[in-house]
Amino acid sequence: MDILNWLVDPENWSGAGSIPFQALMHLMYSAVSLLVAAAIAVPLGVFVGHTGRGESLIMGSVNAMRALPTLGLLILLVLLIAPTIANNLAFVIPALIVLVLLAVPPILSGVASGIRAIDHSVIDAARGMGYSTLQIVLRIEIPCALPLTLSGVRGATLQVVSTATVAAYVSLDGLGRFIIDGRAGNDYAQMAGGSLVLAVLAIVLELGFALLGRTLVSPGLTRRAVRAPIPPALDTETRALRVA
């Protein structure tokens, strides 16, 4: 009941430090991190998937980022950057760097895997039709890789949104504030309420990406393609062949 009381308390829904404000700041840090990560990962993923060059070096280096300790790296970057910057950016920049490093691997892997999964006969047919390399990348490889690309972005988004709570460790806003401040004041209702809001936010984003995938991805690239109805006039043998 303490959690419910904290969630319905009007003071927690208005003004600075409220649930909507902290959720908005949380989403802002996450969105900026994902945009920067996509700007880095998508071109690299297209290069690796299309050419196959540097796969071991690039993919190995990027996947090594998954092993980086997020909180430890954040504190280290703050200690290195804070002496050179006197304003709040001394904390914002390290937090964004940490989140970008977290988001790059799944996006890059999704793009590269999606392009590598394309049947080579499709690429050969495009070359036979006179498509240039740029046309093959833009009109065939990227659209065909869209399902796995969205899957990578989806995974990166959930990881970043879940991990962005670490920004509160360096005095930044976000939903992590409720967890840190609640722990400091032994206010477990605030800690649990903040965690619940974060979980709901992650679920909403998950559902949003599922809907986005159904909207953007061509049915021909999924199992959602619907068979054409069989005209009643077809005989039984023909209908059986059509169904098979």
Rank of each mutant, 00 (worst) to 15 (best):
L79K: 02
L79T: 09
L80A: 10
A82C: 08
P83G: 09
P83W: 05
I85L: 11
N87F: 12
N88E: 09
A90R: 00
I93A: 03
P94G: 00
L96F: 07
L96T: 05
V98D: 02
V98K: 04
L99R: 01
L99M: 10
L99V: 10
L101P: 07
L101K: 05
L102N: 02
A103L: 09
A103S: 13
P105M: 14
P106L: 06
S109G: 11
G110N: 11
V111F: 10
S113P: 08
I115N: 02
A117I: 12
A117N: 14
I118Y: 12
I118D: 06
H120N: 00
S121Y: 01
I123T: 14
I123N: 07
A125P: 08
A125M: 15
G128H: 01
M129A: 15
G130H: 04
T133F: 10
T133M: 04
Q135G: 10
I136V: 14
I136R: 03
R139F: 00
E141T: 08
P143C: 07
C144P: 02
C144Q: 03
C144T: 02
A145L: 11
A145R: 03
P147E: 11
T149L: 01
S151P: 04
G152K: 03
V153Y: 12
G155T: 07
T157V: 06
Q159E: 15
V160K: 02
V160P: 00
T163E: 04
V166W: 01
V166F: 00
A167H: 05
A167S: 11
A168V: 07
